[in-house]
Design a protein around this nucleic acid. Sequence first.
RNA 1: GGGCCCUUAGCUCAGUUGGUUAGAGCAUCGUGUUGAUAACGCGGGGGUCGGUGGUUCGAGUCCACUAGGGCCCA
Length: 942
Amino acid sequence: MALDLKNTLNLPETAFPMRGNLVEREPARIEHWEKLDLYGKIQAKNAAGPSFILHDGPPFTNGDLHLGHALNKTLKDTILRFKWMQGYNAPYIPGWDSHGLPIEHKVSRELQETGRTDYTAIEVREACAKFADKYRLSQREQFKRLGVLADWDNEYWTIHPEYEATELETFASFVEKNIVYRSKKPVYWSIPCATALAEAEIEYRDHKSVSIYVKLGLSAEALKALALEEPASVLIWTTTAWTLPANMAVSVNPKIEYSAIKTSNQGTVIVATALRDAVIEACNLEDPETINTFLGTAMEKLEARHPFIDRPSPILLADYVTTESGTGCVHTAPGHGQDDYITGINNGIEVYCPLDDNGNYVDDGQVPAELVGLSVLDDGKISEANRGVLKIIAQNGSLIAKKTITHSYPHCWRSKTPVIFRAMDQWFIALDKGGDRKLALDALKDVTFIPAWGEKRIRAAVESRPDWCISRQRTWGVPIPAFYNEDGEAFIDADVIRAIAKKVAVSGTNIWFEQTAAELLEGITLPEAWPTTDLLKSGTDTLDVWIDSGTSHRAVLQKRNNLSWPADLYLEGSDQHRGWFQSSLWTSVIADKAAPYKTLLTHGFVVKEDGTKLSKSDGAARPLPEWIQSYGADVVRLWICSQDYRNDVPVSDKIVRNVSNSYRNLRNTLRFQISNLFDFDATTDAVPLADLNAIDQWVLNELAQLVRKVTEAYQAYEFHRAFKDIIDPFCANVLSATYHDILKDRLYTCAPNDPLRRSSQTAISIIFSVLTRLVAPLIPHTADEAWSYAQNDSDFTDEPIALSDWPNVDSAWDQPAVAADIRALRSFLSEKLNDSLEQLRQDKAIGQSLDAKATITGSLSDPEFARLKRYESDLPELFILSQVTVVEDVTATDISVVVAHADGVRCPRSWRWVPVLVETGTWGAVSPRCAEALKQISQTTK
RNA sequence: GGGCCCUUAGCUCAGUUGGUUAGAGCAUCGUGUUGAUAACGCGGGGGUCGGUGGUUCGAGUCCACUAGGGCCCA
């Protein structure tokens, strides 16, 4: 019988599952979108809309995606989904970056393992391309699985022939501006392999070296400046005697104190005071006596003489000089060391390096004749070069001590021999010569930075970077289109490059490695000064890969019809201030005289829950597919969008599980709404907004505020605020704890067509439609799922939510007066009633709140009481009690409340307590209101 | 070592121009309901705002220093 009565209730009905089961169900939805060509439909819908160009920074295709990729791509996808719903014409062309050392290095190792060593450049490049493509494809699938909607079939790729051609054309414009020049710069060099090495190709191993102390005599002026009366030397210490022929200077620290020490066996020598005793011992200095001390600055620009070549070796200041070892006076050979190089550049010293590719001293008129032709390769035994140099300095007395030491030294990963640091001709872009640095800094003024401090960061990077070294001695990259004659003289020309770019556009840059210079230049008019093509060889250097991705704005935005330049938005991790943001800025400023972006948005890095960085062994560093496999894409996305990405973004299973709880609440909120609309057809059942019940007016007023605040947060790209600050509390407080809780009684117990019920259903259907769209960019799968169920009670719809418009506020929702009343009444409940109700519950006097009644007493002169009186008939519903009596007492100074168990009998249908039940016959005894509802139900079913 | 940035309850976030007992959601504990039920309601506990020292009648909110953390350089 009770069951029969239950059947007369309008209980919620829906097939929308309570649990998302995202891991299993999301893929089908993604497939459905693809079948519908959802991306294409969106573009078609918005074709005439305002333009918004988000230019994708290309991920490097060398492995699985991780959460950092998810963070970046989810933010982009969320922004675009929002913009699309707002009607923007916003094509999204995803990009991929593939040239560069990480792939070449990995592929080279794999090729090595086959035992062959004679791979041609083309073979290496083809293996790299294959490797890159494999990961491009798997990354693409992983992004799709995240729910990222994009023009996946028209991606841009830095190794596409057209892309490479544009890159070369861009480079041609640099050459044309006459800012591309050649200069020496030291690189790691493997003598047996006759090749330059990258940092990653170096292994540190222990090596035995001869360390030596060498005197460099001071000039007469120098002695005078240091108030020394007798001849004196600066004393240097080095472990690479073979670099002495390239010694061009001595570096000292300006802030360190130095001592001039007079000795009976080595004359006067100058060393850092802190190292005085150590040097005296190591060099057996006899009768040492400090005759003067001074700071390093005192020696600036003073002249020392090279120990065995007739040239000056000036004393320079350098902050990197320490007193940890040696003498505090550092042998400086700009052609053989990174620090030395920078010191040399800063002081206008030649980057001198008298070595050929085989590591032998060349005859340049400066290297002593007895050294010419000797090899510097120090493999197992002392090199010829070291022995030769030691002999010279021992003979002329400048060597005052030597000792064999074992230390960690870089070795070639392939030949296992010690590498040398050797200056080679490199290509550079001059950044000041054409005024480009100033232009770049000016261009930044027109860029909007999110967060604002990004400007400081990129500005500092732009201000401080030296001329851009753009050549790499690598194979897997875009070749530097330069030619060389027999003497190594370089020929480069903008028009020639453009002509080659045309060929590259068709055949790719592989032709550079397949064809001879003559073949490459066939049909191309050469500048008059060039030799004939049979005398030229094409260069083997490739361009810095930052030129690859850094020219994407030209290769993509400027080349494609549906895009435009500059971009409205670039969005990447904060490391890109010195990476892609900067390389793009330079290429753009040089070639196009303006920044390629209007807004620059950066996010932080994914870190562990304690804020420290993720290392490979951390569980949280597992690949993205594994995260999606355990939580589903929407939960991963919601995790991302619930965090303030401007700072670092912490992650742990605990944190994601936490988000998962919020997700469940949101999902159930939507489910509750769908299920209570099962018999509601807006076209026939909707109640005019003006006629809505007070509580429904209140909730629409809340909804209006929600839409305004959420839209504002989205526009500011502050998704964590949209969700955490606004949507999450709205679902929990306004809906779950208040509105839905109140509504259950009328939705379930009223007659289906009761105006009160239809009023609430009208409001619910509006809320559902709005709320679902508000969360659609954040959790696209779930929003689309709910949208489908609301339409046809099944999984899919041909009108996905992504095709709908962003919700606007209907001014009729704004009912501030009613809303203020309802809000005040609910506050009254929580502040004045809930404590007593809770007490009754604790005392087991009542169970659910409908078991209780309240009596409120006060004076009508009190506006709060007056309001209670005004809403007296609504109060049982608003407070979810069976009876509320508002009693006027003119003498009352305060509002008093008495709560007790409700009177009368409990209606078995509505569970409300009423004075008496009414006999209905068929259904037994129920409350009068239920009796009336049952009467209507039986009439409509007849 | 340098540049930029971060530090509020167990977790993720709010805290307007400095001003009453620092808020929310989740988690936790207790409890109600069994007509949103692997769901929902009600209630409790839990931060003195990384630390120290200043400015001020008054500071999470301004200044200095310091500790820890992140990105990028060296």
